[in-house]
Design a protein around this nucleic acid. Structure first.
Lengths: 348, 348
DNA sequence: TCCTACTTCTGTACCGATACAGTCTGGAAC
DNA sequence: GTTCCAGACTGTATCGGTACAGAAGTAGGA
């Protein structure tokens, strides 16, 4: 008694029509007379009924209108990664005109990740940069909903989009060696849990390791073996700066640095400035991803661009098509070396 | 017949128990013997049943485990705004330990925004920076779900958190005037639709106009009337650079610029560098928001920080408490003037 | 032996809506 | 005056679960 939320039934009784008629007033205006419809809506408004309850509707209809997005381990971390954010932006680009919402699952690192996936009220999943053996991935598989993956788990029978990190990193190596650099360094991120203030977070699912290997291998093929490797504790600008600091001094310091992400690379630029090294005069820097900020840094960053926004867009489009029963094709994206002002021939 | 997805019933029949027992096997292990539970789960696994369907469950339970987040007009734009992203990060911080997911509603600018809100399968809404008269706001009100607001729509009886943009901007003015600047400029964002590549987008819901007014008023109180105002076409680094360019030349160019967001301010730094003006020697720059990037720019940015991450965090915490039946209190956040290296006394 | 107390499991009634297959009404067609 | 039909509305079953109350079965104590 009292302040119960009105339902279809409440409105139906109050308007003196059947429940179906109220439902039709909202969903199929052509199934009833305009007069009745107006009356029903008026009664509904008076009762404070705001339309069919989404939960009931989605149960009956069998679809929810929302897409689940599952990223790395920690949502909080995801928002600090400009690459992931622009990927999300691409997803949003595609979902907005389709009128679908985006459900971000909070992957808490350890236990719940799978249970969050099991409880997600969605029509389909978009997986981005998860380890192959992640519990969330198998949970998604067993949900039996359509899904596509970006970057990491490549699952047979399901659309996938991404770059070949190994050959992409080779572009950076070839560029630097081509400019004449002979002492190189790589700033990577270890493939382990990083301890963030809010807890342990796996940050290296985006093929960072392959980028390091690909860079070293390509440098080797080009005749350069002198490649120092340092690891940043996480994929962020300040971690990049911190990791690069030791590379800035010494007689045999590298003349060029490849960072496995633009976020790190921006940190390298900062560390260089702090060490009074001029980029690109004293040090060349190459990043990876092609985030917008790279174009506005001082100097603008040379990078291996992979257009994450577009990947997000295409993945989302594929997902929508999958939901409609289509069988979209995705696949490898070609990375582009974007040469800006952070690389040059080494000083003599 | 055939490949129908298994339900509780399917599993119950196959395991020779009642539907309730299967349900309990998942939700209340203490309600049945370990042996039965194990058998039920085994049968479920064999049938490929991945646990209770979230839609059915949420209908029956009356809660969904997800929070709806409604931001400005375009989701795509939201991801380009570092301030909004860090606010989202704060929300994620709070939601992750609670095991709740975050539903981002795609506000498409015009029509659907309200219908997306009506169809959102959520327990509560977090509204961020919407105009008071937005359809989505009234749609949320009529849903009758708990909600809190950040920044713009301040609604009686619902928790609100935000800064007083007018007095916050005054901090910037007082700082600059205190340093001795007498020719000032403001980079604002007009309170209108901006035309982005993907369509018209309202970008000025974050109190930009109040910041401009607050700055001018405070400068006036301090005896400085010479305040030029330029408008960026959107709230982004490149728009900020573009808008600031005309301020960089001329005999009577301003000696200090206040940008209504850090994103814009970073653009101002870029424009200054392009014009060979030294910051802070030739030009002081103050931003607004306190985004992380401001700490790593060259030079590090003086800014009026409002800790958006924390606001997101507190708003989300309040929302969770509201869902639990609590009556949380939020309120005004005090902005902090963070003085870094982008401001100094004007050159003689 | 009977009774109480537990544990374990089952039955039934919803949660709020929509699909589908009618039923009813009034008017056009013959 | 029937027959037929389109349009407007209603009844019932069901979507997939869970809450709650009760029914067996099992043990321990008097």
């Amino acid at each position: 008694m009292g302040t119960d939320r009105p339902t279809l039934d409440t409105v139906a009784k109050a308007a003196g029509v059947s429940r179906m008629t109220v439902s039709n007033a909202y969903n199929r205006p052509d199934q009833l007379s305009a007069a009745t419809r107006e009356r029903v809506l008026a009664v509904a408004a008076e009762l404070g009924y705001s339309g069919p309850d989404p939960a009931g509707r989605s149960l009956r209809r069998g679809r929810t209108g929302t897409i689940g997005v599952v990223i790395t381990e920690s949502l909080s971390y995801a928002f600090t990664d400009p690459g992931l954010v622009s990927m999300l932006r691409g997803v949003a680009d595609e979902l907005t005109p389709a009128g679908r919402a985006m459900l971000l699952a909070p992957m808490s690192g350890t236990d719940q990740s799978a249970s969050v996936v099991r409880d997600a009220i969605v029509d389909a999943f978009l997986i981005c940069s998860l380890p192959d053996d992640d519990d969330a991935v198998s949970a998604i598989k067993s949900r039996g909903l359509p899904f596509v993956t970006i970057g990491n788990p490549r699952i047979k029978g399901h659309p996938w989009i991404g770059v070949d990190n190994t050959s992409a990193a080779a572009l950076a190596a070839e560029h630097l060696v081509g400019l004449g650099h002979r002492r190189l360094a790589v700033v990577g991120v270890p493939p382990v849990m990083a301890l963030e203030p809010e807890g342990p977070v796996v940050v290296s699912r985006r093929g960072f390791a392959h980028r390091v290997e690909g860079f070293i291998a390509a440098a080797g093929r080009a005749g350069v073996e002198d490649v120092a490797v340092v690891e940043a504790w996480t994929n962020s600008t300040d971690a990049g700066a911190e990791a690069a600091r030791p590379l800035m001094t010494g007689r045999r310091r590298p003349t060029a640095v490849f960072a496995v992400s633009d976020a790190l690379a921006l940190g390298v630029l900062g560390a260089a400035a702090d060490a009074d090294l001029h980029v690109p005069g004293d040090l060349s820097v190459v990043g990876f991803d092609g985030i917008d900020e790279g174009a506005y840094s001082r100097p603008p960053l040379t990078t291996v661009a992979q257009d994450l926004r577009q990947q997000g867009r295409r993945a989302a489009a594929a997902l929508l098509s999958l939901i409609e029963g289509g069988s979209p094709r995705l696949g490898k994206v070609s990375p582009q070396l974007v040469v800006r002002a952070s690389t040059a021939r080494p000083a003599r």
